[in-house]
């Protein structure tokens, strides 16, 4: 597989218009320096990614204190395993968010968080109005592209993807929640993601 730095939106075809794609080499370089023990590089990496990491954790685990713990653990893992990051296999942000997601999902599954898992998953969460850092500003540019791609999914695809990624449910649980056969849930999760991949031009 080649690099996944070409994360760019298909619409308008402006290559440098994709913030996360454009940011990728810089983030990869920060991780490379972190692997050599450069704490200031890691601080920069944190500043560039923390809104996405914390926001994702918060969306999955719901509880802000838990989200902070999950995010902190994920960054510590990222720091420790920065030596193992390989830019040829994916973007630095994708790598970090994979770690965050995994931990967040582990958390909701290990904690009996029934009370936190209400029906609000599909409610549009408005990001709380913290100071608009460069990160959140740029993320919102990307967010608009992602949202418009998500809007093209079928209803079942979108729900399946959202319940899986943000809800932290297993595909078996998603099948039950959506009242569809397991095979259908599996397929919707996959073809929903594949459609997003193609729309957003995630290449390998």
């Amino acid at each position: 597989m080649t690099d996944v730095d070409h994360v760019r939106p298909v619409p308008d075809g402006a290559p440098q218009g994709a913030p996360s794609g454009g940011d990728s080499p810089r983030l990869a370089d920060l991780l490379r320096r972190s692997a050599l023990g450069d704490e200031s590089a890691f601080a920069e990496f944190y500043d560039a990614t923390s809104a996405r990491a914390y926001g994702l954790a918060l969306r999955v685990v719901r509880n802000p204190a838990h989200a902070e713990e999950v995010t902190q653990e994920a960054y510590l893992d990222a720091w420790r395993s920065s030596t193992r990051f390989d830019p040829a296999r994916g973007s630095a942000a994708g790598w970090l968010l994979t770690i965050v997601h995994r931990k967040a999902v582990d958390r909701v599954r290990s904690v009996e968080a029934a009370s936190a898992r209400d029906e609000t998953w599909n409610r549009e969460t408005t990001p709380t109005e913290h100071d608009l850092t460069a990160e959140t500003a740029h993320a919102s540019l990307d967010a608009a592209r992602v949202r418009s791609a998500v809007a093209t999914l079928t209803d079942v695809q979108r729900r399946a993807v959202e319940l899986t990624y943000f809800g932290g449910y297993t595909h078996t649980e998603v099948a039950t929640l959506l009242d569809v056969p397991l095979g259908t849930a599996k397929t919707r999760i996959r073809d929903g993601l594949i459609r997003l991949r193609d729309l957003m031009g995630v290449a390998s």
Binding site: S20, A53, G55, L56, T128, T133, T136, S140, V146, L193
Partner: peptide, 15 residues
């Protein structure tokens, strides 16, 4: 995975 991570863009919240 790379695609899924992009979904996090829509959830960004400053910690």
């Amino acid at each position: 995975r790379e695609t899924a991570a992009l979904l996090a863009e829509t959830a960004a919240v400053a910690p």
